[in-house]
Amino acid sequence: MFKATKSIRTLVLGMALTQTLIGAAGAQTTAPPPLPDGVFAAERDIRLATAGSYALDPMHTGVVVRVSHLGYSYSIFRFDKAQGTLTWDPAAVAQSKLSVSVPTASITTNVDGFAKELAGDGYLKSASFPDATFVSSAFRQTDAMHGKVDGQFTLLGKTRPLTFDVTLVGAGKGFMGRPRIGVNARAAINPQDHGLPPFFTDPIEIVIDTEFERAP
């Protein structure tokens, strides 16, 4: 009995030592490398994006629309260009202002040749109405991570009120002393409100992932 107990105790101690060594090795291999000087990772704290004028970063922006394909599925279209400005103050969010424009001819799709057709006179009429725009009228913060931005959305020359539900992704000191704030924003439009053809049978969801960088 004594020998059996001693053997079990030795086995338990050995397992504990093995787990400790594995844990230490894992901690050493998973430690992230340091960031370059002047580069700071984001945190989920809007206060880290200090007050000022910000510009939309087109290289870190995705504008996607989810369109019902006659009720069978959702087609995903992406717009590859965007520009915009944000006047931001984390201490007075309600006073913030946003203006964004997206060239409709920058639409892309997985269907060969369809993007050119979508930009044409049968759909987005990009030659006559080159940009879709959104201009804010109110910022409404709901908690530390979420809010709503009300404004006027213009497409095909028709302007309608629209509200985006906004989620903070991250904010921080950014790069080389230029703070950044990144968000996900979602809204839905009625295609017939803007004169799109009956092919679009259901509301179109707009999904935007973007970063804004403070001007020098």
Results as ranks from 00 to 15, higher is better:
101 S>M: 10
102 V>H: 00
106 S>R: 08
107 I>A: 04
94 A>T: 14
133 T>V: 06
108 T>F: 05
107 I>E: 08
111 V>W: 03
132 A>H: 04
127 A>T: 15
125 K>W: 00
114 F>V: 04
113 G>T: 12
95 Q>C: 01
100 V>C: 01
120 G>W: 02
101 S>T: 13
97 K>T: 13
135 V>E: 15
121 D>P: 08
118 L>T: 03
136 S>M: 07
95 Q>P: 02
126 S>C: 07
111 V>A: 11
129 F>D: 08
119 A>N: 09
130 P>M: 04
136 S>P: 12
131 D>H: 12
117 E>H: 09
134 F>E: 00
136 S>H: 09
130 P>Y: 06
104 T>K: 02
135 V>R: 10
94 A>D: 15
117 E>R: 10
136 S>T: 11
100 V>L: 00
111 V>R: 11
125 K>I: 01
99 S>E: 11
119 A>Q: 07
108 T>A: 12
100 V>M: 01
117 E>A: 12
113 G>S: 11
109 T>N: 11
93 V>K: 07
103 P>N: 10
120 G>M: 03
96 S>A: 15
107 I>Y: 07
123 Y>N: 10
118 L>H: 02
94 A>S: 15
92 A>H: 13
116 K>G: 14
134 F>M: 02
121 D>C: 01
112 D>P: 15
131 D>A: 11
103 P>V: 06
100 V>I: 15
108 T>H: 09
110 N>E: 14
95 Q>G: 15
128 S>R: 11
110 N>I: 12
115 A>N: 06
116 K>V: 09
96 S>C: 11
115 A>M: 06
104 T>D: 07
99 S>R: 08
104 T>V: 15
130 P>K: 03
137 S>M: 06
137 S>D: 14
102 V>W: 00
112 D>I: 09
98 L>W: 01
108 T>R: 15
109 T>H: 11
129 F>C: 05
105 A>F: 02
118 L>E: 08
124 L>W: 00
